[in-house]
């Protein structure tokens, strides 16, 4: 595969153009990886706005109609809805773990069974997130099971 890197003109946005005959799986993975890598979320903390890189996010959680994003130590709030985030991160490391939670699989340390077909994800920062029974098949598919 030929890789060409061109410098954009002044004022032009950085852009990735893919010229291919068909989009196969490795290419799709590359696109998703690029999408996740460059994806930043505008988040709020103590009344100030920040740009948070998707790769630093451990999980998103909706609590009382507010959506929070959890990093290793910090917690931010985003104005985006959980379903919008789910769509934006489709095909990336993020997956829906429950009605109120989207988890970054790259930040999961291990998985263990919980009550009644549910699983518990131990995150790399020591936090625990429940993967509800309805979303276990989503996780299994992501892991190729």
């Amino acid at each position: 595969m030929k890789i060409t890197i061109m410098e954009p003109m002044d004022g032009e946005e950085d852009e990735i153009i893919i010229r291919c005959r068909h989009l196969d799986r490795p290419l799709m993975d590359l696109i998703y990886a690029a999408k996740a890598g460059v994806y930043k979320i505008t988040a709020l903390q103590d009344g100030r706005y920040f740009q948070v890189a998707a790769e630093d996010i451990f999980y998103f959680e909706a609590v009382d109609n507010r959506v929070f994003l959890y990093l290793e130590q910090e917690v931010y709030e985003t104005k985006r809805r959980l379903y919008e985030l789910e769509e934006s991160f489709l095909g990336t490391d993020f997956f829906r773990a429950s009605k109120s939670c989207i988890v970054n699989l790259a930040k999961v340390k291990s998985l263990s069974p919980a009550f009644n077909g549910r699983f518990e994800a131990l995150m790399k920062n020591g936090e625990r997130v429940i993967i509800s029974r309805q979303y276990v098949p989503v996780l299994k598919e992501k892991l190729g099971l």
């Binding site: 490391d93 699989l105 790259a106 999961v108 291990s110 998985l111 263990s112 069974p113 077909g117 699983f119 996780l139 299994k140 992501k142 892991l143 190729g144 099971l145």
Partner: peptide
């Protein structure tokens, strides 16, 4: 049932490691 869940989790953890090592 718990043991069955444990076995599933063990398999998932194996795949999780493989998934993360690909990154």
């Amino acid at each position: 049932a718990w043991r069955q869940g444990k076995q599933q989790a063990a398999l998932m953890n194996e795949r999780l490691q493989a998934y993360q090592s690909k990154e």
